[in-house]
C-alpha cells in the first residue's frame, strides 16, 4: 500500500471511532504528536508533585496530611501510567525525562506558580485538578487506545483530588477571618492560571485542527474552558468567595457564563520560562535526578550481579 492509502485507511478507522493500538500503522506525525502530548502530560504529573510536596510537611492536621500524601502518591502513579503509555509509541522514559530536564519538553505551566499558603492546597485541588479533569474526561475518548485507557484510570482518582481540594476551601470559608483571607487570596491567585491551563484560544491554537481530525483532541480549548467556568462559578458561590473577574456574568442567551479576557502575555511569559517558579521546579527535578543517579546505577549493577549468579 502507498502512504496515501495507509493514511486514508487510518483516517477511516479514526472516523469509525476505532481505537488505534500500539502495533497499528500510524502516520509519523500522529505518533510524534502523541509522544509530545503524553510525555508533557506525564511530566506535568511529576512536576505537579512539587508545589504540593511543599506543604505536606506543614499540613495543619493529621487527616489533611494523610489526604495530601495520598493525593501526591496518586500523581506519581499517574506519571507512571503516562510514561508507560508513551513508551508504547517506541520511546524510552529516560529520553523523555532528559527532554524535560533540557527544557526541550514542556510541562503544564500551572506548576510554575508558587504554593505559598495552606489554602493553595485547596485551590490547587479544586481549580487545577478541576481544570485537568475537564481535559482528561475528554481524553478518555481519545483515539489512541493506551492513552485513552490510562486516562480512564486517572480520571477516577482526579475527581477525588478535586473534592478534597474543595473540602479544604470549604473548611477555610467557614473559619475565622485569617482562614477566609487565605482562602480568597488563593482563589485570586489560582483562578486565571487555571483558565490558562486550557491553552490558547481556538483561533490561536497551532496544533488543534489536526489533533481534532485525528481525534487525539476531542473538544476544543475554548469549549473546555467554558465548561470549566460554568461548573466552577456556582461552586465558588457556595464557598461565599469571589472569583477575581469583574466581567464574570451569567449570559442567559448563551446559556453560559461570560468571562473576561485572559492575560496572554503572562501566559506566554510563563511558557517561556519567566514564571515565578520555572527555575526552581526544573532545578528540583534535575537535582533529584542527578542525586539519584548512584541509586539507579546500584540497582542496575545489583540485578546484573544476580542474573550472572543464577545464570
Amino acid at each position: 500500500m502507498t502512504i496515501e492509502e495507509l493514511e486514508r485507511k487510518f483516517q477511516d478507522r479514526i472516523d469509525a471511532e476505532e481505537k488505534i493500538e500500539a502495533k497499528d500503522w500510524m502516520p509519523e506525525e500522529y505518533r510524534k504528536t502523541l509522544i509530545r502530548q503524553i510525555s508533557q502530560h506525564a511530566h506535568s504529573e511529576v512536576v505537579g508533585m512539587l508545589p504540593e510536596g511543599n506543604w505536606v510537611t506543614r499540613a495543619p492536621n493529621l487527616k489533611r496530611k494523610a489526604i495530601l500524601l495520598a493525593k501526591i502518591q496518586d500523581e506519581a502513579g499517574h506519571g507512571l501510567y503516562l510514561y508507560s503509555a508513551a513508551e508504547t509509541l517506541g520511546v524510552e522514559r529516560d529520553s523523555l525525562i532528559d527532554d524535560l530536564h533540557s527544557g526541550k519538553a514542556k510541562y503544564s505551566s500551572i506548576f510554575n506558580y508558587p504554593a505559598i499558603s495552606w489554602a493553595d492546597m485547596g485551590a490547587i485541588g479544586w481549580l487545577v485538578d478541576g481544570a485537568a479533569i475537564m481535559n482528561q474526561v475528554a481524553l478518555c475518548r481519545t483515539s489512541y487506545g493506551p492513552y485513552a485507557r490510562a486516562m480512564v484510570r486517572i480520571c477516577k482518582e482526579e475527581s477525588f483530588h478535586q473534592r478534597q481540594g474543595y473540602d479544604i476551601l470549604l473548611s477555610l470559608s467557614r473559619g475565622n477571618a485569617a482562614q477566609k483571607r487565605m482562602c480568597q487570596d488563593a482563589i485570586n491567585r489560582w483562578w486565571w492560571p487555571s483558565l490558562m491551563m486550557f491553552g490558547p484560544n481556538d483561533a490561536h491554537s497551532p496544533h488543534s485542527a489536526q489533533s481534532m481530525k485525528w481525534k487525539i483532541k476531542r473538544v476544543s480549548n475554548d469549549e473546555l474552558r467554558q465548561r470549566f467556568v460554568d461548573m466552577t462559578v456556582p461552586q465558588c458561590e457556595i464557598l461565599g468567595m469571589k472569583l477575581p473577574d469583574d466581567k464574570l456574568k451569567w449570559n442567559p442567551e448563551r446559556g453560559h457564563y461570560d468571562f473576561g479576557e485572559i492575560d496572554w502575555s503572562e501566559f506566554n511569559n510563563v511558557l517561556k520560562g519567566n514564571g515565578p517558579c520555572n527555575k526552581e521546579r526544573l532545578a528540583d527535578r534535575l537535582n533529584a535526578h542527578l542525586d539519584g543517579a548512584w541509586v539507579r546505577e546500584a540497582a542496575m549493577a545489583h540485578s546484573e550481579k544476580r542474573a550472572r549468579r543464577t545464570a
Binding site: V46, M49, L50, E52, G53, V56, T57, L62, K65, A66, L69, A70, I72, Q73, A76, G77, G79, L80, Y83, D284, N287, A288, D291, G292, A293, V295, R296
Partner: peptide, 24 residues
C-alpha cells in the same frame, strides 16, 4: 514525606510516599 517529589526514581518516590502514608 520530605522526599516527596525528590526521590531517586519515580517508583521510589512513590514507595517512600507510601511508607509515609502508612506511618501516618
Amino acid at each position: 514525606s520530605e522526599w516527596c517529589g525528590h526521590g531517586p526514581v519515580l517508583e521510589q518516590d512513590m514507595a517512600m510516599t507510601n511508607l509515609a502514608l502508612d506511618h501516618i
